[in-house]
């Protein structure tokens, strides 16, 4: 049963390596804006020791880890899902005993592994350049941090897969994707820590899934959370994933009733 998805996982490996140069280039230049961001924070921190509870070391670490999470865990399969539905390419999956959802999940998983391998060099460079400022967590927090990343990966996948299913209903949904990216950048905390947002918004975000994609994880990493807060975060990651999965199931079923399998 799992063997078929293991094969999908392996194939995604082979496929990415066909375009390895493309991916490497994308990653290297993806880290460039980070240099500007870090210098910006350096200049902001000249007078103060901490801003909103963050020291300059925490802030630099925050920015680097946020960038790493985005680079490695942000899905990119939604473009392909959109394409499959729009062009009728989806048909070749529907007529086989394989789950489309799981297919892309394992494909995506393979991609994440490749991304980890390919980003080791640029990440090391960034960390070396910020040597005096980059913090290392204790073992306990590191363990929770890694677990939280698994939650992030699943939650990310659910969000993007759900939005890509809108392709059943709208011909052109790239603007949805871009909107989602902008909203996520702000609300996940990958641009700035969520502590910097206005309080009212902050309280709302606590219940939304987005903050548990990046902000939550880095706060574990930086040892800023109590054990109970970590547990609360895991619970939210879990229930949001579950909730989105239910929505996916519903949308998928309705979408298939509407699907016209265009092309051939």
């Amino acid at each position: 049963m799992l063997k078929k998805y293991l094969k999908v996982f392996k194939i995604s490996f082979q496929l990415v390596f066909q375009y390895r140069f493309n991916v490497v280039l994308q990653m290297f230049f993806g880290f460039l804006p980070l240099i500007a961001l870090i210098s910006l924070w350096h200049s902001l921190f000249t007078d103060n020791n901490t801003i909103n509870g963050y020291s300059i070391e925490m802030m630099v670490t925050y920015l680097i880890v946020a960038k790493v999470i985005d680079t490695i865990l942000m899905p990119d399969m939604h473009w392909q899902v959109n394409e499959d539905i729009k062009t009728g390419e989806l048909s070749k999956y529907l007529t086989k005993p394989i789950s489309y959802f799981s297919y892309w999940f394992f494909n995506s998983l393979g991609n994440r592994i490749v991304r980890i391998l390919l980003s080791i060099i640029p990440i090391s460079i960034v960390i070396i350049l910020n040597m005096g400022y980059f913090l290392i967590p204790n073992n306990f927090n590191l363990l929770f941090f890694i677990i939280s990343l698994i939650g992030t990966m699943i939650l990310y996948y659910m969000i993007y897969y759900l939005v890509s299913l809108f392709s059943f209903y709208f011909v052109e949904i790239t603007s949805f994707f871009f909107t989602l990216e902008i909203v996520l950048e702000l609300l996940s905390g990958s641009l700035i820590p969520l502590d910097f947002l206005p309080n009212a918004l902050r309280n709302l975000i606590n219940f939304l899934p987005f903050g548990y994609l990046v902000h939550f994880n880095i706060n574990i990493y930086l040892n800023r959370l109590e054990f109970s807060e970590i547990l609360y975060g895991f619970t939210l990651q879990f229930f949001w994933s579950l909730f989105l999965y239910v929505l996916i199931k519903i949308l998928w079923k309705k979408g298939l009733n509407k699907y016209e399998s265009v092309g051939a």
Partner: peptide
């Protein structure tokens, strides 16, 4: 199903890879 105007083989991989995937899919 064979659709003459659509392909199920991976463009960048060998047919054999697709066959191996089908082997797993169809158990």
């Amino acid at each position: 199903i064979v659709l003459g105007q659509k392909n199920q083989l991976w463009w960048d991989l060998s047919p054999y890879e697709t066959f191996l995937l089908h082997k797993e899919i169809y158990e």
